[in-house]
């Protein structure tokens, strides 16, 4: 099999490109510390969220110094709680699950973006910076009212954060 020398060169460069891509992703994972959503959130019965210790009353709770957990339920066609309120300059872990069909949970204009699958809990930890407001959209078709499914993430100054905020619906 004789291959033209230019083609051999291109084959080499293609492999270089591929290895370069994989190396970049690996750098993002190991060097920067970007992790993927995985199976650490565990499983739930979507019909029994009412009895779940956390999802029965979705909301934000403080779990450590500057560390918060936000339990979020997606259902046709709302997010609970709405808005989700967290203090600025904190580490927030979202636990998101669905009470019915497949939804999406995307904090618009950011990297916080996960699928929400009934039976599964998506665990997403992010570092929250300055105060501000972000929209949240459901980005997976979930029924005829899908386009109206939105929420809000409100990042408030540390001093203004009231622990009951995120828990209210």
């Amino acid at each position: 099999m004789h291959i033209h020398q230019y083609e051999k060169l291109w084959l080499g460069m293609s492999l270089l490109l591929i290895v370069g891509f994989i190396a970049t992703i690996t750098y993002g994972a190991v060097g920067v510390g970007v992790t993927m959503i995985d199976d650490s959130g565990g499983n739930v019965d979507p019909n029994a969220l009412d009895e779940h210790p956390e999802f029965s009353d979705p909301g934000v709770e403080k779990v450590g110094e500057n560390e918060y957990e936000a339990y979020v339920v997606a259902r046709q066609f709302i997010f609970q709680p709405d808005p989700i309120v967290v203090p600025a300059n904190s580490t927030v872990t979202f636990y998101v699950t669905s009470a019915d069909v497949v939804h999406g949970f995307s904090v618009v204009g950011t990297n916080a973006n996960t699928m929400v699958i009934p039976g599964e809990v998506a665990e997403v930890t992010v570092e929250v910076g300055e105060p501000g407001e972000y929209g949240i959209v459901c980005h997976e078709y979930c029924g005829a009212g899908h386009h109206s499914m939105e929420g809000m993430l409100r990042v408030v100054p540390e001093g203004e954060y009231n622990s009951s905020d995120g828990g209210e619906q």
Partner: peptide
């Protein structure tokens, strides 16, 4: 890639295979 319930390692393997799948198209 952003599905809950699938470990990161499996996602990484799928990515490596996908990247090598670029090869036939580049050729």
């Amino acid at each position: 890639y952003v599905d809950p319930g699938i470990a990161e390692g499996f996602k990484f393997i799928a990515m490596t295979n996908t990247m090598f799948l670029l090869l036939p198209s580049l050729l």
